[in-house]
Design a binder for these strands. Structure first.
Lengths: 334, 334
DNA sequence: CTGAAAGCGCTAACAA
DNA sequence: TTGTTAGCGCTTTCAG
């Protein structure tokens, strides 16, 4: 910057004014400074300015998602990026991998870099460690999973109701021998889906103790193996509710390998790529990751713009998409 | 930091030493400082340190991919993140959307934030604007697409050969009426795939002037519509080569809508989610996005570690995966 | 082993 | 309209 000032024959402050488009600079000076900046390939250092700037903003936010290569996360990320780009804010993205240590490290890495806000998918037992940061005024928005130990803006799908809708859909088609395949049991979001499923069975008067509830499936392969084992039981279910996108994919593989894809009903929670091109199409309770990301970003920016109201919890509705697999009728017990 | 120093009753430099794990501090002092830092919830400001630090590193890199919600991009991103995490480096991620303006803005946003290195997917005619930054010593690695106007490390798939393999695969099964559906014509990567396709037809003695070459398909919907139009021609192809993942998905929709998925052969470039669960399975020339991301990150870090050798161009091989759609024999002309 | 002073690139406050 | 001075939070250099 000094060099630019020297070359343009003005003071550093004038350069600063031109770079930041502040008023009260003559057109001639602007031209001189711009030319000098171009000649020297000057790139302003955002961080140096931040050190002194009144608002102390880095125009940067941190985003922690399940994994940047999961389609749900990708859609959330994209929506957050679009909102951020419109405000000149850059996004740090990290993958959680459902590892509490990664959560802590990612948050710490974000904070050391003085992000203006945080959008977090979490797995730790408690997010109380964020309390000091929240007091300091850093906006934190939790996505996909509710926080524990702190109150802050949260954007989640209607997991309980979505799971209930999926379950009712199967019950209404006459299924009585259902099975639940789901994510890690300690994830509150997974718990909600499990509860939505079991509650609905209870309402239908079905003894849930005989219903297979298989949890802790964390990737396609473990889900596939669990589903294969389930299908080989003496008394296999006539319908499966898979409570997460990777679990659904694992189940799809298992059904296909067993040749049962047209015989056993399946409803998945969260949409799956190309679900409509499969045979049969995969019926899902679709989430709305774009909307989740959009709202999360909106919350962060509203807080940065001064919104000091109490923590807002936004529940994004899910939508049942019938494509075939969820409409398979129960097979006679054989 | 001053507060921590005051609370611990030491000088700021001592705090600095403790935070950075520098030697020559007594255990007692370390304990005092650590305790004070914890009490005050002290988070060191990486950027402030950077201003003065000898190496001037922000421990941050910028990654520009096609779109963070494209599966190929997601896989590249994940590989880059894994490599970066191992070195305590955070990743800024942005989507290019094949928009030259976004490329410039993203790079500029990265540079203003003083990233240590850049991993870029590009769309502009020339990347000559990066020359000053390269001279300054910032490592830049181009992924998926070759740069123009500058020489720097590049990691790409073997697009020419991959496309040739796909084409040969169809030719060997007796197809003569092929069609090419591809991405934007100005993308060099797309050009290479198109050339690989056409060259192979030439080698087989097929007059390429009668071969439909449909380009500038930039999303699923435009690809779907183009494929539908193609299939409704008087003399539709017996085999299609779709040269990008979204194009492949669009073609799959069109084939399905026309009921021709078992009648017309299809080979796609770049793998597609759940390709193996479709009916028929989708034969593809798979790229290796994990490897591309891994190598790109490795190049950046090698440069940061002092590697000053000439620009390295790494070509990551592709792999033909036969799943059914590419093995459909040509239909008699009817 | 520890601390004081200077300065990284920038902006705030004020003066000219 | 423009320039000067101080200082953001840290690390460097050098002195104790």
């Amino acid at each position: 910057m000094r060099h630019v000032a020297a070359l343009a024959g003005v003071g550093v402050k004038t350069v600063s004014r031109v770079i930041n488009g502040e008023p009260n600079v003559s057109a001639a000076t602007i031209a001189k400074v711009t030319a000098a900046a171009r000649t020297l390939d000057y790139q302003p250092d955002l961080h140096a300015g931040n050190l002194r700037r009144a608002d102390g903003r880095t125009r940067t936010i941190g985003l922690l998602v399940g994994s940047v290569d999961n389609p749900f996360s990708g859609a959330v990320h994209r929506a957050v990026e679009d909102a951020a780009l419109a405000r000149g804010v850059a996004v740090f993205a990290s993958s959680l991998d459902d590892d509490p240590a990664r959560e802590q490290e990612a948050v710490s890495a974000f904070l050391r870099r003085r992000v203006d806000g945080l959008i977090l998918t979490t797995i730790s037992e408690s997010q109380a460690y964020l309390a000091p940061e929240l007091r300091r005024g850093t906006p934190v928005v939790f996505v996909d999973r509710e926080p524990a130990g702190v109150a802050s803006d949260t954007v989640v799908s209607d997991n309980l109701e979505g799971a209930a809708v999926a379950t009712r859909h199967l019950l209404e088609r006459g299924h009585r021998r259902l099975a639940y395949l789901g994510d890690r049991a300690e994830i509150r979001t997974a718990q909600a889906r499990r509860r939505g499923f079991l509650d609905e069975l209870g309402l239908a008067g079905i003894a849930t103790r005989d219903i297979p509830v298989i949890e802790n499936l964390h990737d396609i392969e473990t889900a596939r193996l669990a589903a294969l084992a389930l299908l080989e039981r003496d008394d296999p279910p006539t319908a499966i509710f898979s409570a997460q996108n990777l679990v659904t994919i694992g189940v799809l593989h298992a059904l296909r390998e067993s040749g049962l894809q047209h015989a056993i009903a399946l409803v998945g929670f969260d949409d799956v790529p190309l679900a409509d091109l499969l045979e049969p199409g995969v019926t899902v309770v679709a989430q709305n990751p774009q909307e989740i990301g959009r709202i999360a970003a909106e919350r962060v920016f509203a807080r940065l713009d001064g919104d000091a109201g109490p923590a807002v919890r936004t529940v994004v509705p899910t939508r049942l998409i019938e494509r075939g697999s969820g409409e398979i009728p129960p097979r006679e017990r054989g």
